[in-house]
Every structure is written in C-alpha cells, then in structure tokens.
Nucleic acid binder design. Structure first.
Lengths: 104, 104
DNA sequence: CCATTAGTTCGATTATAGTCGAACTAATGG
DNA sequence: CCATTAGTTCGACTATAATCGAACTAATGG
C-alpha cells in the first residue's frame, strides 16, 4: 500500500505555498478541489500527460496545499484547508474567494 | 524625468501576484514596505548587488504589488494596498498578517 | 493470474528565472 | 559642469522548473 508524505502544517513555508499556487494549472486544480472534494487526479488532468499532472500534484502536496490518500486504485486529493487556515490564517480562503470573481 | 509603467488593477492576474510574492527576498521587501512606506530601494537591498535588487522590484512592479515614484534622485516604493484589496480582496492583507506570525 | 486502471518515477529536453558585473541614465549638489 | 547618488539595463551564465514519453508499480476486476 503506497502512501504519501505530507509535511506538518507547522513546517510549511509561506513562500512555498505561494509558489505552489502561482501556477495557473495548479491554481485551477485547487479551485476545482474547493468545489468538489475529495477528487482523484484523472478528472483534473485537462488534457495534459499524466507525468506533468503528477508533477503538479506533487508540488501542491509538498507545499502542504493538498492531501492525497490512496483509496483502492485511485488517489483521492483534498485541500488541507483547516491546517492551512491555522498555519496561515485567511490566506487560502482569500485566494479561493478571489478565484470566484474572475476576469479574462 | 523617468517614470514607471504600473499595470491597471483590473489587468492584474492572481497567479502573477502569487508568483511575485513567492520569492523570500521579495516577500521580505513587501513586509518591510508594509511597516514603513514609502521607501527607496537602497535600504531594502540586504547586501545584494543593485542589479538583482532592481530585478526583484521590477517583478513586484509588474505584478502590481508596488508602485514606484521618482522623487528627485531616489525612487520611492509603496504597496498598492487599496488597489490590490479591490482586485483581490483580502489576499495581500492575509499574506501580510501571516508574515507577522513567523517561524524558522 | 492476467489485463486494466491510476498514478508515479525516470531521464532527457527545453524554458523560465535568478545572479552579477559593467556600462548607462537622470537628478542633485557643490 | 563635474562628481555623486540611486537605480536601470544589458548580456552572459547558472540554476530551477516545466514538459513529455516510456518504463514502472500497486490495487482491482474478471
């Protein structure tokens, strides 16, 4: 049974969090996860090769943005909202809110 | 009289903002500006060569984080707080607040 | 137990960013 | 008007990150 390492909330760095969220593809993954959680990687691929998608999920995981749990053959991802809230209060929620008021 | 281009608030991209803030040096500049504003570049150099510092200020400027005004021989920088607040409500303020509760 | 599914890992390639010295510019002060 | 100050721009180099195919792995279902 494969498992993932998830950094402790207290070990997260704000700059790493912001970096993880600074990529449009990753930001879109986070937005979609906020809407429907947990979710496997596959429906979030958006046409990219699996290896790229896996890389982006790994960045999000290492930054503490998502938690991935192996459930049978799929890997279910969810946002670490409460932990991020306690470590960096208001940061993720403000970013999620800003994503809901878009512009082209 | 040299002047700088500052993007309109409505043209700012969240991913660019987060990218600009994802660098520890730039984040530190922003933190210092939040404390004392406006400020020239020089006291924020932190031992780096001028060309590197200038590059980081340029990234912050293009992302809409700072506004730079030429005042005589110095270039005064300030945060575009109210504009960022209207474009991405709560994002910058949450990040600034998170910077005040540090950890090594 | 074999094929399938879901995702990871590897390795190579390319693209993007950061770093730094050196030359440049614009405003000021003597 | 020359020297100084404050910062920019340029160009080269380096480092970091993204991309993608191919091989791999672990769980499941027939």
């Amino acid at each position: 049974m494969k498992h993932y390492d998830h950094p402790l909330a207290e070990d997260l760095q704000l700059s790493c969090l912001l970096y993880a969220l600074s990529d449009p593809f990753r930001l879109e993954v986070v937005r979609k996860l906020a809407v429907c959680q947990p979710q496997p990687c596959a429906p979030l691929q958006d046409g990219r090769p699996k290896s790229s998608v896996s890389h982006h999920f790994s960045v999000l995981r290492k930054a503490g943005v998502i938690r991935t749990e192996v459930v049978g053959v799929t890997h279910m991802n969810s946002l670490r909202e409460q932990e991020l809230q306690s470590r960096f209060p208001g940061v993720l929620s403000a970013i999620l809110a800003a994503l809901e008021v878009p512009q082209p």
